[in-house]
Design a protein around this nucleic acid. Sequence first.
DNA 1: AAATAGATTAACTAAAAAGTTAAATAATCT
DNA 2: AGATTATTTAACTTTTTAGTTAATCTATTT
Lengths: 208, 208
Amino acid sequence: MELREKRDESVRRILEAAMSVFAEEGYSGARVDEIAKRAGLNKAMIYYRIGDKLVLYTEVIHSLFGDIGSAIKGNIPADATPEEKLKIYIRGLALTIADHPYLPGIMMRELASGGGNISELVAEDFASILSIPANILTEGVNKGAFIKTNPVILHMMVVGFMMFFRTTEPVRKRYFERLPEDVRILNEKSISEGVNEVERLVLRAIKA
Amino acid sequence: MELREKRDESVRRILEAAMSVFAEEGYSGARVDEIAKRAGLNKAMIYYRIGDKLVLYTEVIHSLFGDIGSAIKGNIPADATPEEKLKIYIRGLALTIADHPYLPGIMMRELASGGGNISELVAEDFASILSIPANILTEGVNKGAFIKTNPVILHMMVVGFMMFFRTTEPVRKRYFERLPEDVRILNEKSISEGVNEVERLVLRAIKA
DNA sequence: AAATAGATTAACTAAAAAGTTAAATAATCT
DNA sequence: AGATTATTTAACTTTTTAGTTAATCTATTT
């Protein structure tokens, strides 16, 4: 194999392994040896190519949040109605979370620890994501389609649901039998059906 | 001081210190020495009175989730309308979270790691909490007040908002200037104003 | 007040995990 | 093909942290 290919391949594998381990165990819980093992490489490679554990973690966080904001924004056509835009935004969030299985775990842990590792850059991504529902709601209010609503609350309700739905899955599965009827039914459904319902509820909530 | 008092006081201080450290750092990130330091006691006291790190953690988790379910349930008068009941339920959740500042951090981390430390007992508490909105919604549908809605989705949207609102606070504060106008306004407001809005949105969403 | 039992600690050990180094292997260049 | 440069590893050191122990201090009992 070519040298550059080898190097890039190694870096890719380290970052991927690191992401999975950090998502499962958190920063302190993650073992550098375990990351190396999953990457199929010697531990020294991590220090040689990336740096120490903290640098590696920062790298992983950055690569995870870096491209999310733009991805969601891109999907919304300018000429759509506010309702359509809001639907696309909700769907975009759901798709992003589906595409990045490690996102909820890492994000929830990051927030739990006060977001100390969230860089300037990532903060900008967050602000950029928040501006999407903010703009849609403003447009909707101006066109008389929506009532005045705080976009952050809406955003947090939607994202909150998605994160909780995903991360409670193991617990819901484990204690299946004792769950109320409604929960059991939802348990069998996919997240996309849940998202449909969220979409419906949100639109009912804010329609003028 | 009396011997029994001394013992109880030590245990109390250990548990309190442990909760704060576990909330801030997570299980693996928490240092037993740090817990002892915050408790103002020697580390050996922890092993003498409680047990090893995992026993201590389990104890903390249990004491945290143990009495929450019943606390919320207790507040809802049987003769209230479904709308009133739903409001009380949302308020009850908000109050609980306000009363237990370490709850969001610990819960989010627990979920992020697959809830491996959530005991049978705590799972029962969760199921019991979920049954509250489930019953209210059913009653509301039967009385023609609400449309048919999945209670888990509703619950997760509400709880999701509250947890995110609390845990994103440091990040929101830190990057204050770059936030969109709406977010900045909300930032200055208290959580209770956020809860009001959530209440309003939820009721609009499900009203028949 | 002397003896006893329980609370508390300082100092220790053992284990685990992060991080380093020098040597080996593989690709690239002349 | 041989010299050179980059990748990769096995084996090591250092640091951190959980957990223990034996001694000390303090309240209680006789």
